[in-house]
């Protein structure tokens, strides 16, 4: 074999015509979607795209670098409040404000990364959990942040272009999600991502090969928090109104579930995790609207559970699906995808 290899192929995103074809199809369908779909589904797509951003970012930390965070709702909140306040109080234009919010989140990520240098496993989990809860407490008590009442997102404009409808927001949110996903994928294929993965697989080998653990661990936290910050900044405009309870610590746990259900250490898995779990969340929220089943569930829930009623059922189904997925496919949705691909490759034999 003295054929010269093309090393660019090793890191190239689309190295065949077939992949190019699918990539263009994907971009085209994403572009056409908001013109065909009813408004509720555009809203849902926005929700999904925002969750994809968080999931990809959290996966960089958890799946690729092997750290843990139960505090990502905190970064999400910092991004949301940071963006909104940069616009209302500092009168920054939206794109700058969004970046400002994300960089503040990244800074807090860096700070939270410092204890991660000494803490591992359950200890780190608790430290990050505490961080997430502290953030919502601080926001809830401080009047600049609107306290418990929350604050309204200002009008959103990029240059002279005003974004009002969910469809207009769709183009902003999906574009950002698309670019950040590509960026994460690229990052994981090159030097910095390799250092993250090395730390996950063997931190002593990584450091004896010249990887500065302090730098890369805190960087992983900062990058991950940056993603959550951007997602939070976008979420403020999707919801139109934010208050501390939009970012309670249960949300952090949901985020982690997205990553695990999608597949640890897989960008594509994160996309699937974010999309599927958001669909599940939003659909279960409206489970009472199902014909027949809805009213049965309501009666059942009111009869046998506490007064919160239907959310009981939603949580139970949600939890059940997560448990089943993790038990039967530890690689998450990404694992399903791989198996399906192998199945179709060998089909019909």
């Amino acid at each position: 074999m003295d054929m010269k290899r093309d090393y660019y192929e090793d890191i190239q995103l689309l190295d065949s015509r077939i992949l190019w074809f699918w990539f263009i199809m994907l971009v085209a369908s994403l572009a056409i979607f908001p013109f065909l779909a009813p408004n509720y589904y555009i809203y849902m797509a926005n929700y999904m795209a925002i969750h994809v951003i968080v999931t990809v970012g959290l996966n960089i930390l958890v799946g690729y670098t092997g750290q843990i965070s139960l505090g990502h709702a905190g970064f999400f909140a910092i991004g949301a409040y940071g963006t909104v306040l940069s616009m209302t109080a500092l009168h920054l234009p939206f794109p700058i404000a969004l970046l400002a919010g994300a960089f503040i989140a990244a800074f807090f990520g860096f700070i939270l990364g410092l204890p991660a240098l000494r803490l591992e496993g359950p200890y780190l989990a608790i430290a990050t959990l505490g961080f997430g809860m502290a953030i919502t407490q601080v926001i809830g008590r401080w009047q600049v942040f609107g306290g418990r009442m929350g604050i309204e997102a200002p009008d959103l404009s990029i240059g002279s272009y005003i974004l009002e409808s969910d469809r207009q927001l769709y183009f902003l949110i999906v574009t950002v999600a698309f670019l950040l996903t590509l960026a994460a994928r690229n990052l994981m294929k090159t030097r910095v991502g390799r250092a993250f993965i090395a730390i996950r697989d063997s931190d002593i080998a990584a450091e004896t090969m010249g990887v500065n653990l302090t730098f890369y661990k805190t960087l992983a936290f900062a990058v991950s928090a940056f993603y959550a910050g951007i997602a939070g900044g976008l979420m403020a405009f999707l919801l139109g109104f934010i208050n501390p309870s939009s970012f309670n610590f249960i949300l952090s746990i949901y985020f982690l579930a997205f990553v695990i259900v999608g597949g640890l250490g897989s960008i594509f898995g994160s996309i699937m995790g974010g999309v599927f779990m958001t669909w599940l969340m939003l659909t279960l929220d409206k489970v009472q609207e199902l014909p027949y089943l809805g009213s049965i569930l309501i009666t059942f829930s009111e009869r046998w559970m506490n007064l919160t009623g239907l959310p009981n059922i939603a949580s139970i189904i949600f939890g059940l699906i997560v448990v089943l997925l993790v038990v039967f496919e530890p690689l998450g949705l990404y694992g399903f995808w791989i198996r399906t691909k192998i199945y179709w490759k060998t089909w019909p034999f």
């Binding site: 390799r194 993965i197 697989d201 090969m209 990887v211």
Partner: peptide
């Protein structure tokens, strides 16, 4: 102490870490 979920190529590429600039 290898990076078990990396390929051989990627393991060796990590060895280039200090020489790379990205």
């Amino acid at each position: 102490e290898l990076f078990s979920r990396m390929t051989t190529m990627e393991n060796l590429m990590l060895g280039r870490h200090i020489h790379m600039k990205t």
